[in-house]
Design a protein around this nucleic acid. Structure first.
Lengths: 294, 294
DNA sequence: GGACGGATGGAATGTCTGTTCCACATTGTA
DNA sequence: TACAATGTGGAACAGACATTCCATCCGTCC
């Protein structure tokens, strides 16, 4: 049987160092061995710590630490530390960069990795408290919900609006020419809720509109690419999305995944009313025979 | 129902730092903002690097880096560095604790699993030959491209249309009332291309419209949930998508990922014309000062 | 039992890094 | 246009660090 030769390339934090320690383990003195054990068990201590800390953790002297590093073939402790740092950095790289290394296998696979990373990064960064707060505002029966989006994400925003609108009334997308947008904003009330969606290379009119809405006392949330986004400045909560694209455009897959979570959470909170609305829509479809299974 | 208070301790690489940057973002000077961007994008540089390196990476001086750290409330750069180190160390805690991540009993984790699966299933099922063929038809300069979508996926379809339209002319979404739709179909020609998007509980009008288009000799492609879909019957190629949703609606994350792949492939094939179109759009935006970085 | 060799940790040293201060540039304003 | 205020980076300074050297200790062999 030919076993695949260790396909798991993630490996432990310090492949390079482990190998050198294994190779030299026979020639290590007792004190050096204690240091080596700590290096293997707590790589962070090597990556972030100092010679003195590593010496204390292993119950030895600073000189022993440096001697071990030299014996392993490194240029002093600094060399060992650099090696461990590189290993750790490689392990926690956001996968978006990891992909470009292997000379891009097939196009579809590259997209797959990219989009998976977009979804994972976006949803892992999602703060539960902020989500709950947003949903609470979206669920308020007295509020009206407005969605504002840059041109690049307009389709996804429309998808978001459409699904929100199934769950509750008074959901609208702010869109159209300058006159229409300004009118819409001028009619906003402090009880209203705004969800603004825009990624870097921000549309100026979106930023301006969001700012204007905030001055009207509207409760704002931002879905954007960074906490340094101008949208974040006007928002109570900011949800950051990963949007690395394999083509000429940003990918809004992460944004849509986030939208799905928000919609699902809102549906959960509005269960009673939402199911009623869904049932009525269902009845209307059935009456008109609008849907079919085949 | 008492919601579990979501202890979810995973968090993103630098939750602490991110929060502080978001809070202070309004008071940051231009140079400080550049530094902050690097801090958010490359935490490793802060954790492993020095003030000088961070200064160079952000194109600013060492003093600015230290000032930013102080402004964020840290005790100098050292404090900022320590904070990032702690965050990174938490993130890469080996396997033992991270195994909980994919399991995920909380709502967000459930969505994460679902959406990852949607993307993976959809793109893994994507046939390279079919994709190439579709792109070839989409790239034909004599063809006109029509996109047809069920109501549930209309937003994603609009996103698809918008991006296609940046790459080439004559792309339109078939939408509107029955009269408008029938007129649009009646004017179709055998050289045209139709991409029909609809998932189970198919919209009858979408199926009918697609069939009608086919009788006009239009080259049809289906993006749907199954090869048994009625859309598949009229299509030259059928791309199946996974759309399991955590809420009351289907998730169109997989569909959007597929759309991204198609758009990217088309952009690749139309490189010359597409970049020209992108450049002209860019010039127009610049002239009107429509986009901004902050 | 004494002397030798290696191992070990403490202290001195020189380099590197973070911090602070100040002169210069840049922006906004009268 | 001139002035004021703020932003900004270079240079000096002080501290921390890795490194090296050396005295001490322990085990071993003669």
């Amino acid at each position: 049987m030919i076993r695949s030769a260790a396909p798991c390339e993630v490996a432990s934090p310090t492949v390079e160092v482990e190998e050198r320690i294994g190779r030299a383990s026979a020639t290590l003195t007792p004190a050096e061995r204690r240091v080596a054990e700590v290096v293997l068990e707590k790589p962070q201590l090597v990556a972030f710590g100092t010679v003195a800390e590593l010496a204390e953790a292993s119950g030895s002297g600073a000189a022993t630490v440096v001697r071990l590093a030299s014996k392993l073939g490194y240029d002093g402790f600094t060399g060992l530390q650099t090696s461990v740092q590189h290993a750790l950095a490689r392990q926690l790289r956001p996968a978006a960069e990891r992909i470009r290394e292997p000379a891009a296998s097939d196009a579809i696979g590259r997209h797959l990795d990219l989009e998976l990373d977009n979804v994972a990064t976006t949803l892992r960064a999602l703060d539960d408290g902020a989500l709950t707060d947003l949903v609470q505002h979206l669920a308020a029966p007295t509020s009206r919900v407005f969605v504002l989006s840059g041109d690049a994400s307009l389709g996804v925003a429309r998808q978001f609006v459409a699904e929100l609108h199934v769950l509750r009334d008074d959901v609208s997308l702010i869109d159209g020419n300058d006159v229409a947008v300004r009118r819409a904003v001028s009619l906003m009330r402090p009880t209203d809720v705004l969800v603004a969606i825009d990624l870097r290379r921000y549309d100026r009119w979106v930023i301006d509109t969001a700012r204007e809405a905030q001055t009207h006392g509207v409760w704002c949330t931002a879905i954007t690419d960074s906490l340094l986004s101008p949208l974040a400045a006007v928002a109570e909560h900011t949800f950051t999305v990963a949007a690395a694209g394999g083509g000429p455009f940003d990918s809004h897959v992460g944004t849509l995944a986030l939208a799905n979570v928000i919609v699902a959470a809102l549906a959960d909170r509005l269960r009673a009313e939402a199911t009623d609305r869904l049932d009525r829509a269902e009845a209307a479809w059935r009456k008109g025979d609008a849907l079919t299974d085949r």
